[in-house]
């Protein structure tokens, strides 16, 4: 089954990006986490009919994506992966909200279409921001930063342990599914009985592995608290990054940048 396969190679490809070097990569993970959270909050705080004033956020994101050397193809793939959901969720807006709110030349724009476009913009911005965070920081560092910022310890440990075993378990699952489909070439998915036993076996194997890992942990002195050595170094660049980003986000959110630039341009043209 290719689904397991692609899932894990997606995860791996994203994490590989995090091993590259760039000014964005070098920032403290905590700084990036905080700025990403602020960015997401800013995006979703826009009123639902506001479309044009969100465009400055693209400016910011595009600069960071380029600085972070995130390949455009990866971004496109990531957006594509998630877009059916956003489309589905927004599709009802034009149907339900038919109030005309403005005219663009001969074109009557309804509130529904405006909020639909706004949803698409929100979707693009939030998804790209998460991709940027992950691809420039790496999953493990994001988790460690979460821990440093006060997330429950056990939760952070669980994030890390899950990540480690996803690679092993999906691999095992893939081998089992392959063995099944080789003997049942006509059935794409295992029927319920076969699935139950397949997943059951996978579960038992996982359980046994859990116990072996436990033994291996005990053998190295594990006592129930996981100690993480990873230390971060907050530098001036991080302070500047957080301050600059916050400033820009505030300006973008409340400064009516796009309208001003538009008016200014038209004034020049006139």
């Amino acid at each position: 089954m290719t689904r397991l396969d692609t899932a894990i190679s997606d995860v791996d490809a994203l994490d590989r990006l995090a091993t590259r070097g760039s000014p964005i990569h070098r920032l403290d993970p905590r700084a990036k986490l905080v700025v990403t959270a602020l960015f997401l909050l800013t995006v979703v705080s826009y009123p639902k009919y506001n479309v044009v004033e969100m465009t400055p956020l693209f400016l910011y994101l595009a600069a960071l994506l380029a600085l972070g050397r995130i390949p455009a193809l990866m971004l496109a793939r990531y957006l594509l992966l998630a877009c059916p959901f956003a489309l589905l969720a927004g599709l009802f807006n034009p149907l339900i909200d038919r109030q005309v709110v403005t005219y663009l030349g001969p074109l009557a724009v309804t509130g529904g279409w405006l909020s639909f476009v706004s949803i698409l913009i929100r979707f693009t911005l939030t998804v790209s921001a998460v991709l940027l965070l992950l691809a420039s920081t790496g999953y493990v560092a994001v988790c460690a930063a979460l821990g440093k910022l006060g997330a429950p310890r056990l939760l952070v440990i669980q994030f890390l342990m899950l990540y480690r075993f996803i690679f092993i378990l999906t691999d095992e699952a893939e081998r089992m599914v392959r063995a099944h489909s080789l003997r049942n070439p006509d059935e794409p998915n295992p029927p319920l009985r076969a699935w139950g036993s397949l997943a059951g076996h996978l579960l038992l194997r996982a359980y046994d592995r859990g116990q072996r890992v436990h033994t291996a942990m005990l053998a190295r002195g594990f006592d129930g608290t996981l100690r993480l050595p990873q230390g971060f170094h907050w530098s001036m660049a991080d302070t500047l990054f957080v301050a600059g980003s916050s400033g820009f986000l505030l300006l973008a959110r409340y400064g009516h940048l796009a309208t001003r630039i538009g008016q200014w341009t038209m004034e020049l043209a006139a």
């Binding site: 056990l154 669980q158 342990m161 899950l162 075993f165 999906t170 997943a199 996982a206 592995r209 996981l226």
Partner: peptide, 14 residues
């Protein structure tokens, strides 16, 4: 802790 890790991965894979 180890069981939570592997069983989470199990659900993810399953």
């Amino acid at each position: 802790i180890p069981l939570m890790g592997v069983l989470g991965a199990f659900v993810f894979a399953a």
